[in-house]
């Protein structure tokens, strides 16, 4: 019973995803004013030839700051959780 329900759920989920994707047109976004502006003015406004880097580090600098913060928080969490084990290992005797 549970297995049948799981399969029905998976089928419905996959069907809804595929139905959503079927209506999309590939490579033709509806809202592209910002893209056109960045492609037209990115080189002179930021001085970088790579528009992707220009967007990531200049137009959307705050997002990159958030990404760096997320990474720092991940390191902090890993360090807090696994710190005791790592510190114990300092006195761990090798044979």
């Amino acid at each position: 019973m549970k297995k049948v329900l799981t399969w029905i759920f998976v089928a419905v989920f996959a069907a809804s995803l595929l139905l959503c994707a079927a209506g999309l047109e590939f490579g033709a976004p509806a809202y592209r004013d910002m893209d056109d502006y960045m492609i037209a003015h990115g080189q002179e406004e930021t001085g970088a030839n790579n528009i992707v880097t220009a967007v990531v580090f200049d137009y959307r600098g705050f997002d990159t700051l958030g990404e760096a913060t997320v990474l720092f928080t991940a390191v902090l969490g890993i360090g807090l959780v696994l710190r005791t084990l790592a510190m114990e290992d300092e006195e761990y005797e090798y044979e």
């Binding site: 930021t46 001085g47 970088a48 030839n49 880097t53 220009a54 580090f57 200049d58 600098g61 990159t64 760096a68 990474l71 720092f72 991940a74 390191v75």
Partner: peptide, 20 residues
Amino acid sequence: NTGGVIPILNIAVGLDVLGA
């Protein structure tokens, strides 16, 4: 030698990700 502040931010994020 172009790009203004972008190469510096690149190096900073590179060091950050490498260390993390």
